[in-house]
C-alpha cells in the first residue's frame, strides 16, 4: 500500500494523520494487509459467508409504546447544548452550498 492509499482510507475513516503517523501506519498496514492476503491460499468457491452466529432468528416483541428517556438526562454527556438542543459549529462553511 502506498501513502496515498492510506490517506484515502484515513479520509474515509474521518481521521487526519500527521506525516509521522502516515509513514508508520503505511508500513504497518502494508504488513497487515500482506498478512491477511494469505487467505487467498484457501479455496472458498461456493462456501457461504458467516456474518454472525446467532441462535434465534427473527426475535419479535409486542408493538407497545414505551416512554423514551428524559431529554435533560440525555443531555448529560453532550459536550455543548443549549435550550434542549445539541450545539455544533456551522455546517455550511464559508457560505459554501450543499452541506
Amino acid at each position: 500500500m502506498k501513502e496515498q492509499d492510506i490517506q484515502h482510507v484515513a479520509k474515509l475513516s474521518k481521521l487526519s494523520l500527521s506525516q509521522d503517523d502516515l509513514h508508520q501506519f503505511t508500513s504497518q498496514l502494508t504488513d497487515i494487509v500482506h498478512m491477511v492476503e494469505r487467505l487467498n491460499e484457501v479455496d472458498t468457491e461456493g462456501v457461504a459467508v458467516t456474518a454472525n452466529v446467532v441462535h434465534d432468528i427473527n426475535v419479535m416483541r409486542e408493538d407497545v409504546a414505551v416512554k423514551g428517556t428524559d431529554r435533560d438526562l440525555l443531555m448529560t454527556n453532550v459536550p455543548e447544548h443549549e435550550d434542549g438542543f445539541i450545539k455544533v459549529p456551522v455546517i455550511i462553511d464559508n457560505g459554501e452550498a450543499g452541506a
Binding site: I6, V9, S13, L15, S16, L17, D21, L29, D93, A99
Partner: peptide, 24 residues
C-alpha cells in the same frame, strides 16, 4: 471551524494508535 472538522479532529485526537489502525 465547521462540523466536518469536529468529526475529524475529535476522532484524530480521541482515538489511540491501535484503534486507528483497526478502523483503517
Amino acid at each position: 471551524q465547521n462540523l466536518e472538522e469536529v468529526y475529524i479532529k475529535t476522532r484524530s485526537e480521541g482515538f489511540g494508535d491501535e484503534v486507528k489502525r483497526r478502523i483503517m
